[in-house]
Write a protein that binds this DNA or RNA. Structure first.
Length: 533
RNA sequence: GCAGGCGUGGUCUAGUGGUAGGACUAGGGCCUUCCAAGCCCUCAGCGCGGGUUCGACUCCCGCCGCCUGCACCA
């Protein structure tokens, strides 16, 4: 099963197709159809079970458009802003900073200067002036010129900027896990390979915050999870998560924890263990915010496809928003509560004595430890503040620190693609999607053997009770029964229930299981009970 | 973005300077007691825009999209 086949099936069976298809399509954008939406929902639900529910994560849904200041702080404005340079002869496009030695350390002008003498590596032609290309879609908020804003390039910033609010919701406690499912946007230069490289995509992200000196340990039940690791240095290794952590292959216990959770989640979706590996980023492929990152990759006909990144982001994001915004993003470090006596200015007396100069005096002693008879410089004069202008008070406080964060970030579209490719089975003429029931788009096909003798009425009746029970059921009465099984198989419906004449007599139906094609005759109640998840 | 190739119903495809056929799928009907049976009928297509021409799906140009390679890819 290759890329072409999967995309043809996806279109034929209502999973996905190019967006704006009647207008020729727009590269990098896709529409999901009825079956595709069901598959996405199932994946998201399973993800929520693994990473949100039963884990106490706080789930949010933040705005898609953000102000420039936010993305200045997050680093996306500068880091997503590649300087590209084009060869005037052969029109090849290069990353300017990669052409210049030490280009990463230079600013834009520096790169332009260093580039002046360089020639195109492939044809020896001259370069055009370098031009910036930002991966973020820009827009303006409001009327007139408006406020420069961007579509978010990752859902994560929505969580980081909301951290003070979320911390309150968590009643000030760490660790705190915050989750978000939503779309993110990147104006890729050349999107290809359909749902694997999109300009608009869906992320499933968890941000797991903790105190630097109190990183959550690897939970016991996860220690024995087996995973395939490809470290940046050293050899590929299959081992348990516990071993990986104790031997130092994985440095952080929380990263190890989320590698294990990720392994559990992906295999429960139906991904085969031997087609799943975690590859550590080398220093030079690390994102600007990340200090350690492991990509979860699934093997497909296109090679290894990255579907998740488990990144240690340190305090990069919170400290960035702390210094760029007016909010406090640090938290008090428990056990460091202290009382101390401090001197504070007596503003009333200062005002009376120094009148208009009082303001500059206060300005001068801001952020300075003061005590009686301190000399300060204000308005070019040296002033000695005696005890009468000061008073003493007791200050209570803690040392403030930035929490660290570990982030597992999943690409829904990529997961869906990999799942389709890997679960598509073929046996002669028969083709079917062999997904576990949890991720199948429907639980049950309800089909009358024929549309006469009121078999269809009976089938409709059973359909309704199945739907009432919360079973995802699909009704089909068109064509031969074999044809309907085939249709159901192709979108991965897990069970098929057939209503025949005997059903009318004794209330039994045949229940067929997709993968084995085995059939059993059961009472309607038993059958529905078996189908219900 | 560059170079090359390609673009015909939902899918796979045939074809011509005089506006298109097939197979599969789908829908309707007949028939049918369990894995795409059969018969009848039906829906639906030359990616978009210009140019040449009496006439363009066909030739030319531009754009869009797809594929391959290069470059890019938190």
């Amino acid at each position: 099963m290759n890329f072409r086949d999967v995309m043809a099936l996806a279109k034929r069976r209502g999973i996905l197709q190019a967006a704006y298809e009647p207008y020729g399509g727009v590269a990098g954008f896709f529409d999901y159809g009825p079956v595709g939406v069901r598959l996405r929902r199932k994946i998201i639900e399973l993800w929520r079970q693994h990473f949100v529910l039963g884990f106490g994560a706080l789930e949010i849904d933040s705005a898609l458009i953000g102000p420039e200041s936010l993305f200045k702080a997050s680093g996306h404005l500068s880091e997503f802003d590649d300087l590209l340079v084009e060869c005037l002869e052969c029109n090849k496009l290069y990353r300017a900073d990669l052409l210049v030695e030490g280009g990463g350390a230079l600013d834009r002008d520096g790169i332009a200067v260093a580039l002046a003498g360089k020639k195109c590596e492939s044809c020896g032609g001259k370069f055009d002036v370098p031009r910036p290309f930002n991966l973020m879609f820009s827009t303006n908020v409001g009327a007139g010129r408006g406020t420069p804003s961007y579509l978010r390039p990752e859902t994560a910033q929505g969580i980081f900027q909301a951290f003070p609010w979320l911390l309150r919701q968590n009643r000030g406690k760490l660790p705190l896990a915050a989750a978000q499912v939503g779309r993110a946007f990147r104006n890729e230069i050349a999107p290809r390979q359909g749902p694997l490289r999109l300009r608009e995509f869906t992320q499933l992200e968890l941000e797991h915050f903790f105190l630097p000196n109190d990183e959550p340990e690897l939970p016991n039940p996860l220690e024995s999870i087996e995973i395939n690791l490809v470290p940046a240095k050293g050899k590929k290794k299959s081992t348990t998560v516990g071993n990986a952590l104790s031997s130092g292959i994985v440095d952080s216990s929380l990263v190890a924890t989320h590698l294990a959770r990720t392994q559990n989640f992906l295999t429960s979706l139906g991904v085969a263990k031997d087609k799943l590996r975690f590859r550590q980023h080398r220093a030079n492929e690390m994102a600007h915010y990340s200090s350690d990152c492991w990509d979860g990759e699934i093997y497909t006909s296109l090679g290894w496809v990255e579907v998740v990144g488990v990144a240690h982001r340190g305090d990069y994001d919170l400290s960035a928003h702390d210094s760029s915004s007016s909010k406090e993003f640090r938290v008090p470090l428990p056990g460091t509560e202290k009382e101390r006596e401090v001197w504070v200015p007596n503003i009333g007396k200062l005002g009376k004595e120094f009148k208009g100069k009082a303001k500059s005096i206060l300005e001068a002693i801001k952020n300075v430890d003061i005590e009686p008879d301190i000399s300060i410089k204000a308005n070019g004069k040296t002033i000695v503040l005696s005890e009468e202008y000061l008073s003493q008070k007791t200050e209570r406080g803690s040392e403030m620190v930035f929490p660290y964060v570990v982030e597992p970030s999943f690409g829904l579209d990529r997961i869906l693609y990999c799942l389709l490719e890997s679960s598509w089975k073929r046996d002669g003429e028969r083709e079917w999607i062999s997904l576990p029931q949890e991720t199948s788009p429907y639980d049950l096909l309800v089909a009358p053997l024929m549309t006469k003798d009121r078999l269809d009425e009976k089938a409709q009746e059973i359909l309704q009770s199945a739907l009432d029970m919360g079973v995802d059921a699909y009704y089909d009465e068109a064509g031969s029964i074999g044809r309907r099984y085939a249709r159901a198989d192709e979108i991965g419906i897990f069970f098929s229930m057939t209503i025949d004449h005997q059903t009318l007599e004794d209330g039994t139906v045949t229940l067929r299981e997709r993968d084995s094609k085995n059939q059993n005759r059961l009472s309607i109640e038993d059958a529905l009970d078996k189908v219900r998840r």
